[in-house]
Design a protein around this nucleic acid. Structure first.
Lengths: 132, 132
DNA sequence: GTAAGCCTTCCAGCGTGCTGTAAGGTCAAG
DNA sequence: CTTGACCTTACAGCACGCTGGAAGGCTTAC
């Protein structure tokens, strides 16, 4: 299978596939005599795994670690569970931060309704957003 | 006031201040005869405003628009309220996406406990993360 | 033989908000 | 007169996940 076909079957661009290879997420495939990449069918599973892992928020760096276990012939399960847990924690923190910002924004929006533009002092730039 | 003093008073780096100027967030200050930036005291309010606006999630691009009203002598209130509303909506969407990912991660974590590493087929890379 | 459509490599750039470094000018104190 | 602390510009690079383009080689059809 050449790179164009793999791209079509996985819904990725050839650019992305070559990029994954360059950062060690995909293994280096065999080459034809003229230098074309020649993929085995198994690599398709790896590519799909990469997409699935990205979909749950893992970075390509983390994914590279996971597939590295496979390339070494080891089972990555424990490492993956650890990554999942840490990602979940990170997302919890992100959500908390965003919720705080959202609360602040809603507060500002409410407050803005009671402010008159004429009262806005130029030195404050905008009195809708209060100085900390 | 020279740039170092402004940096100290606002808690920013001189690099950041020069960067803000370069992208039009801060106005070009007066210069001494030898080329040093000489700031008026009012610019400190602008810098503080930039920090406050960043704290509620506005980008420097959006902030530039807001201060542009001021530099034109207009009141930016209506525009700011609009920006705040749109930012709040964007944050709602971000939170929703993150919550979905988090739910999926928790689901994977629970599921992983019932899986045995020995059952993990190499072609799937890792059966903890299911194929889509 | 030549055109179309693949493939290759390498280098650059996107956006965001800066930071680092180099190479040089200025200013006050000793 | 020199030292050190400040200032200036300009260019590069960070993370992240790619995409685009240039310049060239391979393969197949006509």
């Amino acid at each position: 299978m050449r790179i164009g076909e793999l791209a079509e079957r996985t819904g990725l661009s050839t650019k992305a596939l070559r990029y994954y290879e360059s950062i060690g997420v995909l293994p280096e495939p065999a080459r034809t005599r003229s230098g074309y990449r020649e993929y085995s069918t198994e690599v398709e599973d790896v590519v799909r795994f990469v997409r699935s892992a990205q979909a749950v928020g893992l970075t390509l760096g983390e994914i590279r670690e996971i597939v590295a276990y496979r390339y070494r012939g080891e089972v990555p399960c424990a490492h993956v569970v650890d990554l999942i847990r840490r990602r979940a924690t990170a997302i919890d923190e992100q959500i908390a931060a965003l919720e705080q910002t959202r609360t602040e924004l809603r507060r500002l929006e409410r407050r803005a309704r009671s402010l008159r533009p004429e009262d806005c002092a130029p030195t404050l730039v905008c009195h809708v957003i209060p100085r900390r």
